[in-house]
């Protein structure tokens, strides 16, 4: 299988501080990778470098075998590199249905149309309804986003990313701020992600990491110090030292 997403020797420093040092990651379609690391490890910088909001000092970002390092953030999204946000970024005055419709229209090159309405576009409506139903949001499809629960907003955030039919999905702490009672729904949504989609999840919650990821990458002080299976991450000496601390005794639950 060929790599769908590849980061090669990515480097970035702010002043004298190297925040990303020689970071290389390769992902295949269907990969479920968790990127973890203590605060200040350079996770945010890494995300910004990958999405194109920051220019790397050196290194390459490849998407579907194509070098996208010189491309801006919106071009990368159109090529299939989609991210979700750690803090929910939704249009509070609009409905879930409208959110998904905008994303579908954008993906299919119709977002610039000045006539017509998505309610009258059967393909858009069908896809919107189906996607909202998959995530269990169909009963609130026409409510304002400001009126729906936070857990539902997090699900909509995932739905919005999926509506863009990405090849690579960057999930930035998908369960952040969600009440304990709602996390199973988020986890179910994550488990139901398309099987051929490559997912890179940035996450603090180790339980979620162990349940979701087939592979864990640990970033510390801007460099990758571990890249392997969740079973091995807890026993790795460098990881323990740099990050895990009291999580060291946690077992990778099924």
């Amino acid at each position: 299988m060929s790599a769908v997403f590849q980061v090669e020797k990515l480097q970035k420093s702010f002043g004298g501080l190297a925040v990303t040092q020689d970071v290389s990651i390769t992902m295949q379609p269907g990969d479920r990778v968790a990127l973890i690391g203590p605060n200040g490890a350079g996770k945010t910088t890494f995300v910004n470098l990958v999405t194109g909001h920051l220019k790397p000092d050196a290194g390459k970002v490849m998407l579907g075998g194509e070098d996208v390092t010189a491309q801006g953030p919106t071009r990368r999204v159109r090529q299939g590199l989609v991210r979700s946000f750690q803090v929910t970024r939704l249009f509070s005055e609009m409905t879930p249905e409208e959110h998904i419709a905008i994303a579908i229209l954008q993906r299919t090159g119709r977002s610039g149309r000045v006539f017509g309405n998505f309610h009258a576009m059967p393909d858009v409506m069908k896809e919107t309804d189906a996607l909202l139903a998959t995530l269990g949001l169909d009963h609130i499809a026409t409510r304002k986003v400001s009126e729906i629960a936070y857990g539902q907003q997090r699900l909509l955030e995932i739905a919005l990313a999926l509506a863009l039919k990405p090849k690579v999905l960057l999930l930035d702490e998908p369960a952040a701020g969600v009440p304990q009672s709602d996390t199973p729904r988020i986890e179910a949504a994550l488990a139901g992600l398309p099987p051929d989609l490559a997912v890179l999840m940035i996450e603090h919650d180790m339980d979620l990491v162990f349940r979701f990821a087939k592979r864990v990458i640990v970033l510390a002080a801007g460099a990758i110090i571990f890249d392997g299976s969740p079973q091995d991450v807890t026993s790795d000496a460098r990881v323990r030292e740099a990050y895990l601390g009291n999580y060291a005794n946690a077992s990778p639950a099924a």
């Binding site: 999405t51 953030p73 919106t74 071009r75 999204v77 159109r78 989609v82 991210r83 946000f85 970024r89 939704l90 249009f91 509070s92 005055e93 609009m94 409208e98 419709a101 905008i102 994303a103 229209l105 954008q106 993906r107 119709r110 977002s111 610039g112 149309r113 000045v114 006539f115 017509g116 309405n117 998505f118 919005l160 863009l164």
Partner: peptide, 25 residues
């Protein structure tokens, strides 16, 4: 027609959160 069109919807999206709109490509 304009404000209900896909383009009009995109504009309302920009008013609420331009970063989200650019994250949609």
């Amino acid at each position: 027609f304009l404000v209900r069109s896909p383009f009009g919807m995109l504009c309302r999206g920009i008013r609420e959160d331009p970063i989200r709109v650019s994250a949609m490509g």
